[in-house]
Amino acid sequence: MTGPQLSPSTIAASAGSTRPFGSLYAGNARSVMARGWRATRSTNSLVVLSGFVEPIFYLLSMGLGLGALIGQVQTADGAQVSYAAFIAPALLAVAAMNGAIYDSTWNVFFKMQFAKLYEGMLSTSLGPLDVALGEISLALLRGLLYATGFLLVMQALGLNLSWWALVALPAVLLIAFGFASVGMAVTSYMKTFQQMDWINFVMLPMFLFSATFYPLSVYPQGIQYVIQALPLWHGVELVRALTTGQIDPGLLWHVLYYVVMIVIGLVFTTRRLKALFLN
């Protein structure tokens, strides 16, 4: 029943000091991801499917249906595109956001408060950063699946106006990473279901007003600044520029916005998990 007997000195030699993040990270986030994959396969497959078809329904009803009444729309760069081609990239960004948020908020909340899943994980050799990265990576993988499917639908409907649309895939991953990272950080501070509802309260208006269904220019200047401060607008603009082929160096600001989100989210998540489960 006894395992390989490592002497304290051999353990110590391979330990702490040689790992980049000390006891926060054991370099085994993939085992957390593998766990999530197994659990999704057996219990949550229906949720995954609904996340996939939801944006497609939006695209069909609003893009094709409503779009027939609207005709052409002007993008931020002044190009004229069909209404469907205008909202499709926005819906792609929203799909990435929703998938990432679902996985990193409600899912994480449940695992933390009720299933005590993380307590179990953190009594093994895993560190909090392994858990955070593993969970977020799984959310990203899901985001990637949704995005690929949606891009194929866009292609079939002739809504990808440029080969740059291929770059929308990594862009969508970046968006999902940003939302998952911040979502998990926020969730780790939540204690009750009521607090969790605040997340929906923020998400819905952001979805409706972030230049998703009409150009930002319809707003007065003051409101434009507010929208531009929110993360989804950056995602919508980035993906829209790629699928419509309006490329310019200014897009890198959107990328930077998400990189900052990712870093802040990871720092807070790791700190919070450490405080909650390793203190």
């Binding site: 304290p8 353990i11 006891s23 054991a26 766990r35 005590k116 307590e119 009594s123």
Partner: peptide, 29 residues
């Protein structure tokens, strides 16, 4: 096991088996 938990948390936990007061089995598996 000859180590200080403050510095070698993961190494120590790797050599321990833990049965917590409340079961925290993975209900989704």
């Amino acid at each position: 096991l000859g180590l200080d938990p403050n510095r070698y948390g993961p190494e120590i936990r790797g050599q321990l088996g833990v049965v917590p007061q409340e079961n925290n089995l993975d209900m989704e598996l």
